[in-house]
């Protein structure tokens, strides 16, 4: 009796430790892609196009702030492909030794102002954002969109005092969509994806600060060939077309 308890406990423990959910994927190839939050909509469409050509492949995404993902990869999070929203974050992953080969740039992006559709604060230019009483939300400088925000501020010669600094560009967008902020600085592509929910206001300084988006396959990817194939697809004509549709620039 005692032994049976012990064995049962050990089996349970082993099952928990090894993760018993790995069975049942036979015959189907799985690709895990960790990608910047700003790639959410475009990469989902790219997946659909890729899977249409490779019916035996399933792609799992995790869209988060690039920096958070980079740190998770450095800590050994298993994944096949990493796509980041700037070169600085990608360098972190490459330096950690988890990248297989060099990263390749596949798109560019730039910032834009977004305001709620009725533009309650009457924002028309970047300088308006520095006005007193404007509730502006930006990304924190620790993440790519925040780093881009700092550079845009320098180019425009305008210092912003945001009411909140988010860790993810989608959080900035959501605050504007929810009407909790008068304006936010997000990527052109996020404004595009939000459609009618926000109005976007282009400003000259944003054209001088381009974020490049690199992608890399990771060391110990479960299926390196598939990872390479997916990356080639993203950079190929179909991938380019979809990315352009969402407002990304060509590399």
């Amino acid at each position: 009796m005692r032994n049976r308890f012990l064995v049962g406990g050990l089996v349970l423990l082993l099952a928990v430790l090894t993760g018993c959910g790995q069975a049942g994927n036979q015959g189907r190839k799985e690709l895990t892609v960790l990608a910047a939050a700003s790639l959410m909509e475009s990469f989902r469409e790219i997946r659909d196009a890729f899977v249409a050509e490779h019916p035996d492949v399933g792609i799992d995404f995790d869209f988060q702030g690039s920096s958070l993902l980079a740190e998770q990869i450095r800590q050994g999070r298993p994944a096949d492909v990493y796509a980041s929203a700037d070169a600085r974050t990608m360098r972190k992953v490459v330096r950690s030794g988890r990248a297989a080969g060099d990263s390749k740039t596949f798109a560019t992006n730039r910032l834009t102002i977004v305001v709620p559709p009725d533009n309650p604060a009457g924002v028309t230019s970047f300088a308006d954002l520095a006005g007193p009483g404007e509730k502006v939300v930006t990304c924190a400088p620790q993440v790519p969109c925040g780093a881009a925000t700092e550079r845009v501020e320098r180019v425009a010669g305008v210092r912003l005092s945001p009411v909140s600094e988010e860790t993810d560009v989608k959080d900035v967008l959501n605050k504007v969509v929810a009407g909790e902020a008068d304006a936010g600085l997000v990527y052109v592509t996020d404004a595009h994806a939000a459609g009618e929910q926000v109005r976007s206001i282009d400003f000259p300084a944003s054209h001088e600060v381009l974020n490049t988006y690199p992608v890399v396959s990771l060391e110990d990817a479960a299926d390196p060939e598939l990872a390479t194939e997916f990356m080639a697809f993203v950079r190929g004509p179909k991938g380019r077309e979809i990315l352009a549709e969402y407002g990304f620039g060509a590399p």
């Binding site: 939300v137 924190a140 945001p162 009411v163 909140s164 600094e165 988010e166 860790t167 605050k175």
Partner: peptide, 10 residues
């Protein structure tokens, strides 16, 4: 609910 800003809400 509060957002994140140094000295105020962070």
């Amino acid at each position: 609910f509060a957002g994140s800003l140094r000295g105020t809400t962070r």
